Computed example of a mutant assay.
Amino acid sequence: MSLKISGLTKKFGEQVALNDINITIANNEIIGLLGPNGAGKSTLMKSITGVLKIDEGEILLDEKNVSENEIESKKKIGFLPENNPLYNEMYVKEYLQFVANLHNIKKERVEQVIDLVGITPEKSKKISQLSKGYKQRVGLAQAILHEPDLLILDEPTNGLDPNQIVEIRNVIKEIGKEKTVILSTHIMQEVEALCSRVILIHQGKILQDSPISEFKGKFESLEEAFQSYTV
């Protein structure tokens, strides 16, 4: 899987959300996408997935323009947005089977993913009956169901208890061995536990794109480095 973003710019009226973003990802790795609220992280993720139309620049997934090959590109991308939109009146397994049908995926894969993300005890419940943590797991399940080459996760452990966070981290770590994962989070421990590379966005621009050790650099912690770069 290769992803190349060149000169990506996105505006909302007079506001510049992304300003000349350039990123190249060539290998399977877990990348931490960091930045303060309003930095442009969600806009970048939605641009990659084709949810938002870009104003300038181009995004190439496996050397094909995402804007010109929308359906083919979306087949290769899994996305868990921060607000995790789900059909609350559907049952868990019913919902995942619905998603599987959209992708022409066999039923066996549904059971496999249910087990992988740890929602087997909840699979016969309505989504509306689930805790926030289990809803996050269902969202992650739909994102990986079609075995995408690129997985984009926006705050995937939001609302989970400490045990659930560790479990979801382990799932993401396993996926990252064979796929590329872009992980947006405000939890620095998550970045240290999972990511080999950090892309820091601030005010729509990339301030740093480097291995995590280089990003941390002379600072004692990732939090300290983050504050230094963005304050």
Rank of each mutant, 00 (worst) to 15 (best):
M90S: 10
Y91N: 13
V92K: 05
K93H: 12
E94R: 04
E94F: 03
Y95N: 02
A100I: 05
L102I: 14
K106L: 13
K107I: 07
E108M: 09
E108Q: 15
E108Y: 11
V110C: 11
E111F: 14
E111A: 14
Q112S: 14
V113E: 01
I114F: 06
D115P: 08
I119P: 06
T120P: 09
K123G: 11
K123V: 10
K123W: 06
S124Y: 15
K126N: 10
I127S: 02
I127E: 01
Q129C: 08
L130E: 04
S131M: 06
K132H: 11
K132Q: 13
Y134H: 15
Y134R: 11
Q136H: 03
G139R: 01
Q142C: 05
Q142A: 04
Q142N: 07
A143N: 05
A143M: 05
I144Q: 04
L145H: 10
H146C: 12
E147N: 15
E147I: 10
D149R: 13
L150P: 03
L150C: 06
L153N: 07
D154P: 08
P156D: 03
T157M: 02
G159L: 00
G159W: 00
L160H: 02
N163V: 08
N163F: 09
I165G: 02
E167H: 06
R169T: 00
N170T: 14
E174D: 12
K177L: 10
I182F: 09
L183N: 09
S184V: 03
T185N: 06
H186V: 06
H186K: 10
H186P: 02
Q189H: 12
Q189W: 05
Q189E: 14
E190W: 08
E192T: 11
E192W: 08
A193S: 15
C195R: 12
C195I: 03
